[in-house]
Amino acid sequence: MGTYIIRRVLQFIPVFIGVTLLLFALKAIVPGDPVRMIIGEGRQPSQAVLEQIIENNHLDRPLPEQYLYYMNDLLHGDLGSSYQKNRPVLDIFVDKFPYTVRLALCAIAVEIVIGLAAGIISAIKRYSFLDILTTLATSVLVSMPVFWFGLMLQIFFGIAIKDWTGGALSLPISGAGGPVSNYPTFLHYILPAVTLAAVSLAYTARIMRSQLLEVMNADYIRTAFAKGLSKGAVIVKHALKNAMIPVVTFIGIDFSTMLGGAILTETVFSWPGIGREIYLAITQRDWPIVLGGVILIVVIVMVINLLVDISYALLDPRIRYSKRTD
């Protein structure tokens, strides 16, 4: 177990260097002069100020050296400052991250409840009407443009229902609440969370169904039936425990993806999370935010995936004792 963790952590290093190099290369070839972006449009600073900016950002250095400067700052926990907002990048993400985390938690809750229930029911009642309905519904969900689904939810729950009921019973269609909102804050989470969860819950249901069907053919399930256990007891105590493992892995990895920001969902719902922040920074060519944000996300995703794999090995002795060949 220990060597496994160490090996996985060591595998981070080349990936991490590759990601930062790639980002740095993108930054280098992107059109636009960073000095111009730092001073802002239309201003004409003195020569001394210009030189100061170039000096502070190491812009007079060759690219490989700039990269080393950046990595050095990065390893000291300094992600640099935004060109346009005049704030440290880390501060900006500390502000935005809680919104992304809360939205991801709500979406994961939706995913677990609906996805698992649909998957289990369609596996137990295989080829029933409910099973066919679930299969069709999951196909539709994975084929849908997420942002379009969000808009349709807004049209229905935010606007149409409001019109029909004369203002009551509708859901807010944008933002994360706040002093000017007419709705209590928790209502703001419902539509974005459902939108964000839509595709994932379809996959969760599909994986749950196929895993449960596979496990139900195992010898130990036949043994459990032979012992005279009821179908419910066999499914809950024997089948689900084993079928859940890949599902839990999927949900864990999915959670890390959601923490990486849901640009489309956040854009449709004007959600003040990190995905939207990075997207806006890309369109405004504010590269410190882009670099810092993507690096943060990559690290978060890698750490969570590692935790998922470790907990996986802890929970399932078969994995712990088998030799890994990846």
Binding site: L22, G260, G275, Y279
Partner: peptide, 24 residues
């Protein structure tokens, strides 16, 4: 495989957006 790891470590949509910001 390490190259694919690097590509897959990126958040998919963000990477596509960044590429298009560079390429136009």
């Amino acid at each position: 495989m390490r190259v694919t790891d690097i590509f897959m470590a990126f958040p998919y949509t963000l990477f596509a957006i960044a590429l298009l910001a560079v390429l136009g």
